[in-house]
Amino acid sequence: MTERRPDGLTVLPSDVAPTDAIQVADFTPDLVDVGEHHLCPGCGEPIAIRAVMDGISLLGLADKCMAVFGIGCSTAFSNNLDVEVLQALHGRAPSVATGVIRMRPELAVFTIQGDGDMANEGLQEVLHAAARGENIVCIMLNNGVFGETGGHLTVTTTIGQRTKNTIEGRNAAEHGHPMRIAEMLAQIDGVGYVARGAVNDAGNVARTKRMIVDAFTAQQQQLGLSFVEILTMCPTGWFIPTDEAPAYLAETIAGTHAVGVLRSELT
């Protein structure tokens, strides 16, 4: 069954492979190794990480950078990358990145952590690193759940969001309130750039990529800690069908965690 979108483009149902399709180009970016990964179909994290790699390629930083990964679903992607990776423990990436940048200040050192990793287990680390003005880029992949352990509530889970421990949706009376991490960081002296992006649609992916480029540019200009929060889909942890996840992100999550640039010291 073939549908037509209002703009006239053909939409193929995802369970039907186009038998006569041929591959005309491989769009895998340079710094992402071809190969399987074990993240779920429809997961937003590979898209976000790819956007980061694109930003690094664009700025020519591939051989002058180091990624410090936290522990979460994205960890499984860290050995698909052709940039140097230092794995940190759950919650500890900003400190680990601090140790690196202090000894190798010429590098573009960045962290990739989930919301559980950065905001639950290790919130003080990113706040302290920001206040110290560590010249690093911190990326938080925010899906509002511990994807890796099975979809549990985090401090960023929005009101109404489904998680394994709030299956009818988070409500403040029972489960407390969500924390807005980008807003929190934006008011710390010592940050160079703070933004929140999302990967739920092509427009947001493009905006997020620009944020990443700006964050690394701020890092290259030694403006202090740069922070990009990226809202990512987690259909598995939200207990919803894969194709509903982008809309769910827009409706349930982006209302609380608004996409946009919160602070920029770039001139």
Binding site: D63, C65, E84, L86, L107
Partner: peptide, 16 residues
């Protein structure tokens, strides 16, 4: 790690 092996096809990785 010194950050320089990225983009070579053999970027280093240090991990537990």
């Amino acid at each position: 790690l010194d950050g320089h092996s990225g983009g070579s096809g053999a970027a280093k990785l240090v991990s537990p």
